[in-house]
């Protein structure tokens, strides 16, 4: 059991709401007085992942487990999966269509950014089934 366990549904059909879960996590971490640097890293990493679920996977679920020494973020979707994770991790690689780019995303920077801001990141994915991204951010880096 973690000190604080949070669960969210991330709707895939409402771009306006993408980031709501990450915003709520940020708010809660601030309220409990978590390390500001860790809050920032959690916020950016989770927001990138949440946006990915919305634009690439039709939404999903987010689970966040907060402990004094670390925050675990789980992003679970049942979208198309990622065929080549190594390629997807490269800066600049994106399959986002033009309409996503006109919304300000799709530069292929999200996954590398998530890797940069988290301390541990694991991707489990199966084409046609979905993806689960697990990230851990330590309170002290």
């Amino acid at each position: 059991m973690s000190m604080l366990e949070l669960k969210y549904i991330v709707p895939g059909d409402d771009f306006t709401r993408a980031g709501e879960a990450s915003g709520d996590v940020k708010h809660k971490l601030k309220k409990i007085g978590y390390n500001p640097d860790a809050i920032r890293r959690v916020s950016i990493a989770m927001y990138e992942g949440e946006i990915n679920m919305v634009i690439h996977a039709g939404g999903g679920e987010a689970e966040v487990n907060i402990d004094p020494d670390r925050v675990e973020i789980l992003l679970i979707d049942h979208g198309p999966g990622i065929a080549d994770v190594e390629k997807a991790m490269q800066a600049g690689f994106s399959t986002a269509p033009d309409n996503v780019r006109s919304l300000g995303f799709g530069a292929g920077m999200g996954l590398p950014n998530m890797k940069k801001y988290s301390d541990e990141m694991y991707i489990e994915t199966e084409v046609g089934k979905g993806s689960t991204v697990r990230m851990i951010v330590y309170a002290q880096r």
Binding site: F15, G104, F105, A107, P112
Partner: peptide, 23 residues
Amino acid sequence: MMSDVLAYVKDQSLLLTGLVNPQ
């Protein structure tokens, strides 16, 4: 591009943009 803001911004406190959506 919000992608770039998320990837490159360090501690700037003001964002200028021509994009208009809640993100």
